[in-house]
Computed example of a mutant assay.
Amino acid sequence: MLASKLMAARALVLLGCGWIARRHAAAARRLGIPLLAASRDLARARAFAREFGAADAFGAYEDAVRDPRAAGAIVCTPHDRHLRDALTALEAGLHVLVEKPIAPRLAEVDRMVGVADAAGRILMVAENFRFMPAFRHVHRLIASGRLGELRELHLVARGYRRPGGWRLDVGASGGGVLIDAGIHHVHNLRWWGGEPRRVFALAPPRTVALGGEDAVDLLAELPGGVVGFLSNSLGARGLPRVQWSTVTGTAGTSLADNRGRWVLLRGERGTRLSLFFRDTRGHLALLRAFDEAMRTGRAPEADGAAGRRDLAVVLAAYRSLAERRPVDVEC
């Protein structure tokens, strides 16, 4: 414990000790980054700290972010708390890695980004899809021209699952499947295909209790006439968790496993299968990027502006659902 009290200010404070916090804690332990665990339930924070070897545990976020050992915070709380908890960390002088979505409203994102900029602190979104080796490989295929001129992107993640807890409250979640897991695929749609100009979204009848929609089908108009399609569902009974992404160009198609294990390329130059075995979900690379951004002060790839653009697409889709018409995406 003495060593933990004398630790240089490099530790990351985990705000929230739920499921996603466990992913970040496991990555931090592998990278040798010290942790401080914080929960509004002190007993839960202590149990989490014991399990993951955190240097200390706190029952109040305000106390944790003011610990002299802390350099940054990872916000792992429900969506409606992201702004409040990110500001708590930023106002204490910490850099912030906030879980996706960055916030449920654009005005909240703007405030968060403004405070981070004024404080000279890093604000990054925990968009692990950006750092998955398989998805970075797809991006390289597109950027290198191996697929030719882009034509279509199809991103499909469908299965059956019953969420619980705060996700059943639309006030806490800000929506349903699209603003939660679906925003990962929105990010890839933007990253691979460019910024959507207009979206049209439909949702089937609900089969799973959720604060918002349990499934959504989204059609997006991308730059250059490219068409994007996203299908995301937690209410597809009878299906395994089928998750795949295809990017089709004039010279070929890439088919990626959304769990990050392989990418198949077929085109004018034949067929090639690329396999990925390390950090397939990108959590190590994500945390490494955040740690480097804190040390160097350089803006990370998945910064607050990128998180805002992801959210803008989601909110345009929700408006399309409500109004049953195509909607332009707010810049």
Results as ranks from 00 to 15, higher is better:
Leu284Glu: 15
Phe276Val: 12
Gly225His: 04
Gly238Met: 09
Arg269Met: 11
Arg237Lys: 13
Asp217Cys: 12
Arg237Thr: 04
Arg266Thr: 12
Asn232His: 14
Thr280Pro: 03
Glu301Phe: 13
Gly249Asn: 04
Ala215Arg: 00
Arg241Met: 08
Ala220Lys: 01
Leu239Gln: 13
Trp262Met: 09
Phe277Gly: 06
Trp262Asn: 05
Gly211His: 01
Asp291Val: 11
Gln243Thr: 12
Gly225Glu: 09
Ala256Met: 13
Gln243Asp: 14
Phe200Tyr: 15
Arg266Lys: 12
Val199His: 00
Gly249Gln: 04
Thr253Tyr: 05
Gly270Val: 08
Phe277Pro: 00
Leu234Lys: 02
Leu210Asp: 00
Ala215Asp: 01
Arg206Val: 05
Arg259Pro: 01
Gly225Ser: 07
Gly249Ser: 08
Asn232Gln: 14
Arg298Met: 07
Ala289Cys: 06
Ala299Ile: 03
Asn258Tyr: 12
Asp217His: 05
Thr248Asp: 06
Ala215Phe: 03
Gly260Leu: 05
Ser233Lys: 03
Glu292Ala: 15
Val208Ser: 00
Pro240Tyr: 09
Phe200Gly: 01
Arg298Cys: 06
Gly225Pro: 05
Ala215Asn: 01
Ala299Ser: 15
Pro300Met: 09
Arg278Met: 04
Thr296Trp: 08
Pro204Lys: 02
Ala293Val: 05
Arg237Cys: 05
Asp257Arg: 02
Ala256Asp: 02
Arg298Lys: 11
Val226Lys: 00
Ser231His: 11
Ser233Thr: 02
Leu230Met: 07
Ala209Thr: 13
Leu273Cys: 12
Leu222Arg: 00
Arg261Pro: 00
Leu218Val: 15
Glu301His: 10
Pro300Gln: 10
Ala209Val: 09
Val227Thr: 13
Ser245Phe: 05
Glu213Cys: 06
Arg266Asn: 12
Asn258Asp: 14
Arg295Val: 07
Asp291Cys: 04
Leu264Lys: 07
Thr296Glu: 11
Glu268Asn: 14
Arg266Gln: 13
Met294Asp: 00
Phe277Asn: 05
Leu264Ile: 10
Val226His: 03
Phe277Ile: 07
Gly211Val: 02
Arg278Thr: 13
Val208Thr: 02
Leu218Cys: 06
Ser254Ile: 09
Ala289Asn: 11
Phe290Leu: 08
Leu286Thr: 01
Phe229Cys: 11
Val199Leu: 07
Pro204Gly: 04
Ala215Leu: 02
Arg261Cys: 03
Gly282Tyr: 06
Gly297His: 07
Val242Ser: 13
Ser254Asn: 05
Pro240Ile: 08
Asn258Cys: 15
Asp257Cys: 14
Glu221Cys: 05
Leu265Gly: 06
Arg261Gln: 10
Ala220Glu: 04
Gly238Arg: 04
Thr296Lys: 10
Asp257Phe: 04
Asp257His: 14
Glu221Arg: 10
Ala203Thr: 10
Pro300Thr: 09
Gly270Tyr: 04
Asp217Gly: 12
Asp217Gln: 10
Leu210Ser: 01
Ala203Pro: 02
Arg269Cys: 07
Ser231Glu: 07
Arg295Trp: 02
Ala203Val: 01
Gly270His: 11
Leu234His: 09
Gly282Trp: 07
Leu255Tyr: 15
Ser233Gln: 03
Leu222Thr: 00
Thr246Met: 08
His283Ser: 08
Asp257Asn: 15
Ala203Phe: 01
Pro204Asn: 08
Asp291Arg: 14
Val216Pro: 01
Leu265Ser: 03
Leu284His: 08
Arg261Glu: 15
Ser245Pro: 00
